[in-house]
Design a binder for these strands. Structure first.
Lengths: 203, 203
DNA sequence: GTCTATAACCTGATAGAC
DNA sequence: GTCTATCAGGTTATAGAC
């Protein structure tokens, strides 16, 4: 099939396997994935997978760390930007997630489901909540609403933007096409910031 | 076949298996579950599982239908109650979910994850979005805010109350103990209705 | 109805040729 | 580095005794 002659575009075998692993693990979950599926998807042999990564679990871990970073790492720069207001940050966060999740619709359900199943705790490797910590965002929130628990506040925002993707099978049935789902998410880009501003205003 | 003397024992064993299946499937997911695990959890033999339910998949389907009903069926009576106001319905829904989810914390991630993995489409058996349809709730919302898309509105509410349970592994690390997590959810019982009222008031 | 034993198949991982 | 062939162990489901 595909010949490996390209030295400029680094389509290394290792990367091909990783890319295949991303696809298959995301689609079938860790337990539902067979290493054979990944090898086939990568267009290589099963033995080669074990040559590059030593086991199914090690390959999974590589993919999982990446995915967690993609899902939560997105927050950090925005939360700590001293040049934007609280209201601006909310608009930015909602749109960052809308963009990223429309491109990776099953990222949240994959990551959160596998985290929940907890095949060995690599929860220890990553602390997304520390992003919040003493961020500029939290300070700005405290200045405006000292009574508001930052975690409760952020849960509200993330829940509103991420939930439709987690419950996508339900929403797809409720509204029909993929296009309609995307339209709904795009409508939420304006809706959620408006809602959050209302929440911040009312004691 | 015509014998009815052992009906009670039969029902009891069948229920024991079902209960074990609920536990193990929820904890490990469909693909991660071995029928042996269920048999052991039920305190019976593996062969007996296949005697009552014909296969792993059939047993799973029984459990899954139940779980979906538990997660979404809870909405219907409240949404269609003509004796409560819109504001009252919101308080009721948030507290119904808080109660139910504190008792079944991994119900949402289980159902939504398995729906997403979609091992054969039994999505066709169940249409939770039809609960919304022409409900009293939607009529009340339309009377108050004709501009508000009911699906967007409900997504917001459900997202805010369900999301912490779906992202529970993250939240647990952020706030420490199980007790602290429960306290956070209990705080949300008052928080979310207040927020939703603010959303409804502000155009 | 309930068990033991086993069939039939699947899956992760490795040995060894090229 | 990459392949084919295969091993060792695990998994669902069933046959057959009680």
């Amino acid at each position: 099939m595909a010949k490996k002659t390209n030295t400029e575009i680094k389509a290394s075998t290792e990367e091909k396997i990783k890319e295949a692993a991303r696809t298959v693990f995301t689609k079938k979950g860790y337990a539902g994935t067979r290493t054979r599926d990944i090898a086939e998807e990568a267009g290589i042999n099963l033995a080669l997978l074990n040559y590059y990564f030593r086991s199914k679990e090690k390959l999974f871990k590589v993919v999982m760390i990446e995915k967690m970073q993609k899902l939560f790492g997105i927050l950090s720069p925005t939360l700590n930007d001293a040049t934007t207001s609280l209201d601006q940050k909310i608009v930015l966060i909602v749109n960052l997630y809308a963009d990223m999740l429309l491109k990776n619709p099953d990222l949240p359900i994959f990551v959160l489901s596998e985290l929940n199943l907890n095949h060995d705790g690599f929860g220890s490797d990553f602390q997304p909540h520390k992003i919040l910590g003493e961020s500029v965002f939290v300070k700005q929130l405290h200045a405006k609403r000292p009574d508001m628990n930052p975690l409760q506040f952020v849960s509200g925002i993330l829940g509103m933007i991420i939930f439709p993707f987690i419950a996508k099978p339900i929403f797809k049935k409720a509204i029909g096409s993929e296009k309609a789902f995307e339209a709904m998410i795009n409508e939420r880009r304006a809706l959620i910031p408006k809602w959050v501003k209302a929440i911040l205003k009312t004691k």
